[in-house]
């Protein structure tokens, strides 16, 4: 498998002099195996993937791709109207995503971006052949022995992690995700304390986190949400649906992951800060684990 990052940022695109090196586009990952093209998320990075595909591949034949959305928050779908292949007859696109229970169909969630109030071209005018598939926790088999397994993560909307397995190699995406936590008070002095709820809550959070760990156990590469540092998380970001670096590192080490990629960077995080954080965390784990760690950077390529 070969991976190329087209968008690595969380929440909102963040171009500017401070993010030139790592990149400012929101989530989009290209995954290739044999001759097949998978795309994970349609953040603003997908615009540039689309342009690249049109330039380099269209002359060889029409474009066929499977697009996997981790969830339908805006930063993960906002690039879709700018993905040029959807306007080209002959393009065949299968889109997969979890859909929250109270929402519209996947087709309308994605397609509503293509309405006159948001965009000059309507969904009905798209030339590509697009099929929509709503996903939950399941396993799917694709051409040439590719197997995909999905796992619900902890985020304010229904979100899936993906596990891609091909020829013995494993790539997992674990974003957007916050470690499950007990949302019930555990301090008996708290007026809202309820012994049963406190205990059940502890156990439920622990079990759900263990399930996620098991989901990416022994993976060759894990692309993980690391939007905040532990300090930032504890100060003001609890419940926002994202993981601190420290928690991701500990969990990945415990699951014997070979390579951990920091992803979904906070829009305010500068290139200098990200590089400094990488250096700091590498130092902290040096000699304690063989796990490699890297920052996801736009256009970077990874062979698995």
């Amino acid at each position: 498998m070969k991976v190329r990052f087209w968008g690595v940022r969380g929440s909102i695109p963040s171009p500017g002099p401070d993010t030139v090196e790592v990149g400012g586009n929101t989530s989009c990952i290209e995954l290739r195996y044999n001759n097949h093209l998978f795309i994970i998320d349609a953040g603003t990075g997908i615009k540039f993937l689309g342009d690249y595909l049109v330039k380099t591949e269209l002359q060889k034949g029409s474009i066929t791709a499977h697009l996997f959305l981790t969830h339908t928050h805006w930063d993960h779908i906002m690039g879709f109207p700018f993905f040029t292949p959807i306007f080209i007859p002959g393009t065949h696109l299968d889109i997969y995503s979890p859909v929250n229970y109270e929402d519209d169909s996947l087709e309308s969630i994605i397609g509503n971006q293509l309405s006159y109030r948001h965009f000059p071209v309507r969904q009905a005018e798209l030339s590509a052949n697009i099929n929509y598939h709503e996903l939950r926790e399941e396993s799917l088999d694709f051409e040439d022995g590719m197997r995909i397994t999905t796992k619900f993560l902890n985020h304010p909307i229904l979100t899936l992690g993906y596990r891609f397995e091909h020829e013995g190699k494993v790539l997992c995406t674990v974003y957007d995700n916050e470690p499950f936590r007990n949302v019930f008070p555990t301090d008996p002095a708290n007026p809202d304390y309820d012994a049963e709820a406190a205990k059940e809550g502890e156990q439920a959070a622990q079990e759900e986190n263990d399930k996620i760990l098991k989901f990416y156990q022994d993976a060759d590469v894990v692309i993980h949400d690391t939007q905040y540092t532990l300090k930032e998380y504890r100060e003001s970001k609890i419940g926002w649906g994202h993981t601190p670096f420290e928690s991701a590192i500990n969990a990945a080490h415990k699951a014997r992951v070979k390579k951990l990629i920091f992803f979904h960077h906070d829009p305010l995080r500068t290139d200098g800060q990200l590089n400094a954080l990488l250096t700091r965390y590498r130092k902290m784990i040096a000699g304690k684990t063989n796990m490699e760690m890297e920052i996801a950077r736009e256009k970077a390529v990874l062979e698995i």
């Binding site: 619900f152 985020h155 304010p156 007990n182 949302v183 049963e196 709820a197 809550g201 439920a204 759900e208």
Partner: peptide
């Protein structure tokens, strides 16, 4: 309790 933790 578990439902609230899992679903959010």
């Amino acid at each position: 309790v578990r439902a609230i933790i899992m679903l959010g």
